[in-house]
Write a protein that binds this DNA or RNA. Sequence first.
DNA 1: CCGCCGCATTGACCTGGGTTATCGGCCACG
DNA 2: CGTGGCCGATAACCCAGGTCAATGCGGCGG
Lengths: 239, 239
Amino acid sequence: MIERHLLKLRARDEISDEEERAIRAVVARAEEVPADKVYIRHDVLLDTCTLLLDGIMCRYKDLRNGERQITELHVAGDFVDLHSFTLKRLDHDIMALTPCVVAIVPHERILELTERFPHLARVYWFGTNLDAAIHREWELSLGRRTAAARIAHLLCELFVRLGLVGLATNKGYDLPLTQTDLAECLGLTPVHVNRMLKELREQGLVEFASGHVDIRNWEGLQRIAEFSPSYLYLERRSR
Amino acid sequence: MIERHLLKLRARDEISDEEERAIRAVVARAEEVPADKVYIRHDVLLDTCTLLLDGIMCRYKDLRNGERQITELHVAGDFVDLHSFTLKRLDHDIMALTPCVVAIVPHERILELTERFPHLARVYWFGTNLDAAIHREWELSLGRRTAAARIAHLLCELFVRLGLVGLATNKGYDLPLTQTDLAECLGLTPVHVNRMLKELREQGLVEFASGHVDIRNWEGLQRIAEFSPSYLYLERRSR
DNA sequence: CCGCCGCATTGACCTGGGTTATCGGCCACG
DNA sequence: CGTGGCCGATAACCCAGGTCAATGCGGCGG
């Protein structure tokens, strides 16, 4: 199942066979995480990283009144907390939005891996920088895009990211989240997400129902979202 | 002037004398950047990084209609584009908000530095992860905080970050930005920023006028912002 | 088979923040 | 030493999205 992770890495850089072997050897064990479980709590000292093999997890922060902001969604192939390798503790929580399977990688092994292969240090450094790029695009959405464009943009992003690891067809993808989950990504209320999903559906752009996203008009969807995948750094380039 | 950068690094980790010498040696040249100049444009291939020595720069993205979202502010001591070392091009623009002085560091030298000192690779990796943590906190602001809390939070963040590099007193700091600049950080309009600054002033929390921030009630300001500096990782810990 | 319960849907109404516009102060520049 | 442009301040009005409430419905434990 680590294949999706390698797909993600190889979409952006060359990974040699030796490096691949070293990456495969780094996983200590696999684990299942039930839906809705808070998997990592902020400010707890960590000594492992978590590679998501299946399911959807999210990073989120919340306010005292309980309002929650999801800051990034993670899909299979993503390290959900690679930044803990240098941060040592996280400034946010991580939870499973669906039932998940994860692989545990001790920091110690990442240390060895990156000291033995400085190139992989840069590949993984790139990985955390990619997360930051996604954060920036979300900041743009949250600060400036209208509700409909925000939703459209998120659905575009997931289409591309899931497609990269073989989890989307050319028509759509599975997304077993609730409208409330989406609202927490988008800085909106569930009610308004529902209204805007209806609008996108009526415009023939996308349909989101029973855990599945149907892309009806990819060009049109990208247009109203002002989506360009450039921030996902899909080109292969040596680090 | 690279001292502020070392202050920033040493607030979070040990930097040996040998490492310090290596860091100092890495700067190729200094440059001045006039206010309002777009210093780096998105999607342009880069082979240097830029260390901000003086002034304030920002990263921003914008929409077709010209609405702009600043995704992070940079102060003296920050690398404004360290992520370009692994990303090779940026997904956003970088501009000077005030007259600035920067030091140019070729990627090549960062490559040598990080291969020679794997510890510094982790220190700088940490640096970009810190930027991501700031992005996440801004996502929370943009998605969930009220306008007044958002402004208060930004002013708190800058107080701490500037204090760290010796650019704040216990009463406040210089911040030669316009209300429009703040609005672009906060996902608000300049008019509303003006209204909310008035409110914060009348509540005796902060005053922002003629390029200077006066903290009138630090406890109260943090309280309404729900500010906690934990996301700035101010503890010293070896990477 | 029943009764919850979580989720989606929709309508009616409200409000935080946006929009537009005007005015005054400051200062760089001719 | 005018004057035009930028910035801050404020007022009047507007609207995107929030709030509140009711309904429906599918899955599931008992």
